[in-house]
Structures are given as C-alpha cells and as structure tokens.
Design a binder for these strands. Sequence first.
DNA 1: CGGTATCCGATGGGATACTG
DNA 2: CAGTATCCCATCGGATACCG
Lengths: 129, 129
Amino acid sequence: MPLGQKLPEGMRYDVYTQACPSRLVLDRVADKWAVLILGRIDDEPVRFNQLRREIQGISQKVLSQTLKKLERDGLIRREVFATVPVTVEYSITNLGKTLADTIRSLARWAEANIEAVTQAQRRYDEAQS
Amino acid sequence: MPLGQKLPEGMRYDVYTQACPSRLVLDRVADKWAVLILGRIDDEPVRFNQLRREIQGISQKVLSQTLKKLERDGLIRREVFATVPVTVEYSITNLGKTLADTIRSLARWAEANIEAVTQAQRRYDEAQS
DNA sequence: CGGTATCCGATGGGATACTG
DNA sequence: CAGTATCCCATCGGATACCG
C-alpha cells in the first residue's frame, strides 16, 4: 500500500503502525551513510579503503558498521581474497540494485531541487528575524 | 550527476564531497520521521494532533521539530486559523509533492521487498551463530 | 589492507509538565 | 488544540590505538 493513498474508512496506513515491517526497511534507508554507500557500490566491486576515500567524511567505524548492516540485509555482498595483505571486495546484489535505482531517483531529486530548497530556507529564515 | 554513474578520470561524484549541497537535502530526506510525515501529508490538509495519532510512535516534540524543518525547506505549508481553540493545518507544497512522489517509490520498494530483506537477515544471523 | 576495541563528547529523542 | 520547555538517558559517531 503506497503512502498517502486513500484508504477505506477504519483502515490505517500500514507504514504508520509501529509494528509494520516496512519501518524496518525505512530505518535502514533513512540512513545517510547507507544511502551514500549503496549509491556508490554499483556494478564493479569496491574495496574498503576505496570507499573510505570516495565517500568523504565517513569514519572507518561507521563505514564498517554500515557495510555490515547492508550485507545483513542482503543488499551488498562481501568477498574476501586471500592475498597478502588481504583484499576485500564489496559488490551490490540483485536486491540491492533495485533499491539503488530507487535511491538514485532520490539523488536526482536532490540535485534538481537543491536550489529551490535553499531559497525556501532563506525566505523562512528572513521571515523569522 | 546521478549516483553510481561513470565519470571522466579525475572527477569525483559531487554527492561524495563534503560541501556538496545535495548532502543537505540528503540529510533531510534521510530522516525517518520526515519521510513518514511527507508521505502522509498529501492533498488534503492535516492538523497537528491528527498527524500525531496517525504516525504512531512519534513524539510531540519530534513531530513539531520535523514539521518546522519541512516548512523551512519549502516542502510543506503551515496555516493558522483563528478559531477557538486555534486550528493549524499542514499541507504539502508543489515542491513537496515532487519529493513525496519519489519517497512513495521508496515505500513501495520497502513493501515489495521486506520479505527478501528479513530472509537475508535470518540467513546472515544463522551463519554468524 | 581491512578491520576491531575503547573512550568520550555531541546529538537525538522520549517523558513529563506547562501555556496561549 | 497546538504547541514550548526542561530533564535526562541512549545511541551515534569521531578520534585514537591496536591487530591479523
């Protein structure tokens, strides 16, 4: 049931009930770092420190934690290669790909509308002062 | 520039640089409560306590804060009616509508794939133990 | 290289009480 | 009804140090 759609009397939107499983997914998606990582890991596999360099501002700890969550959710795959020193590659799964597509449309919205948003913020802030 | 797309050598993805304005938008979007509120406020205006009831689990404080942010970003509109007691109606703006559409596609993804995600989590957890 | 462990300060957000 | 104010605790996340 999509958000914001009309429902028969007496019914509630699933997503707004606390026990709703969709909220679990939302919790994962509503994570800035997870979104950035999922957006970055595309077709070709990426290594840990490569991600760290490309996603500026993420700490080693948070990157590690977020990768684990994404792997647990079946959105990315972690492969270890017994080189010296060890190499670890992260790649996106088929499931993750479908989510990444949706996320990309979000990113496109952000880039298309950042101007309108900052303008609105300026108007709001001036009206307050 | 959409996420995950190939770039000419030496260029970086905008979204991955710290100063990128798109990150500001992402910060707002990557907010579980903001997403739920934006998804709920559709065509017809909604009142404060109505939202509070329908979005289960949100506290008065967080609802108030999040509504303010969304209004500041120009995504929702706040109208006060001088009734007794006072009535406040929140409605979505044209800008907000375009974002809500994107968000709904995210919610659809969640509802369509929650099963696959929880299954992946079970597999992961069993492999760990 | 690819992490984990620990410490610790900032922030988020719930509970409660109060107000125009 | 529609909030604001305060307290307070839990989680987030940065910094640093260490490891296979």
